[in-house]
């Protein structure tokens, strides 16, 4: 009846609802106690409303993480959708924090919410950025380390979207291997 009402603006729904988590390293507390859910969103517009209003990753304190995971998947190995999975891992030099890190993280987020991995997108659980004094890291987590075709397609797509040159090799590590490692070296299950 009210002809003066503007046409309702429809937000653009995402395929999944996503949850953004924040980790701050407080040494007196357990890892679980240091992880907090910030918020969830399921539209393009709500993603930007969040992204534009939180601290950019490169300005976080050392020891902090952001994690973006599909709603219902916790950002930890123990979640049943992660425990048989693994991660594509990209490590950065200290200098890259100020030149490339935020661009790479945003591109990773856009790959996730845009479901950029075609038929293999369902294998993607989420992504994590670690801000660390010794070197920052971005990791994309997938649900099953044995899904070779999915893992490789996701890795190649990520590498292309981030614009990494061919000579840069990134590795995929199974969480089971990371969790049981004795030293700091974890064997790559795949590389692209």
């Amino acid at each position: 009846q009210d002809m003066s009402m503007p046409t309702r603006y429809m937000k653009h729904p995402l395929q999944s609802r996503w949850a953004l988590w924040f980790y701050k390293n407080v040494k007196s507390k357990t890892w679980h106690a240091n992880v907090r859910l910030i918020t969830k969103f399921d539209t393009v517009e709500d993603f930007w409303a969040l992204y534009n209003n939180i601290q950019i990753a490169s300005k976080l304190m050392s020891g902090c993480d952001y994690s973006l995971f599909r709603d219902g998947i916790e950002p930890m190995w123990e979640d049943y959708r992660n425990k048989c999975g693994g991660r594509w891992l990209i490590t950065f030099s200290k200098q890259q924090r100020h030149t490339e890190l935020d661009r790479f993280w945003l591109e990773t987020l856009l790959c996730l919410i845009g479901e950029s991995f075609g038929d293999y997108s369902d294998d993607v659980c989420g992504a994590v950025i670690n801000i660390r004094a010794k070197g920052d890291k971005i990791a994309l987590w997938t649900t099953h380390a044995e899904n070779r075709d999915a893992v490789l397609h996701i890795g190649r797509t990520l590498k292309e979207r981030l614009g990494l040159p061919a000579k840069i090799v990134i590795g995929y590590q199974a969480h089971a291997d990371t969790a049981t490692k004795s030293g700091s070296i974890v064997n790559n299950k795949f590389v692209v």
Binding site: Y9, K11, H12, P13, L14, Q15, V44, E45, F47, W48, A49, Y51, N52, E107, L110, I113, G114, E115, S116, G118, S121, R161
Partner: peptide
Amino acid sequence: GKKQYDREFLLGFQFMPACI
């Protein structure tokens, strides 16, 4: 079908005025 959005589409919404 699956809702897939390419980067240019997503980036186009970064600075859209907030809707009520």
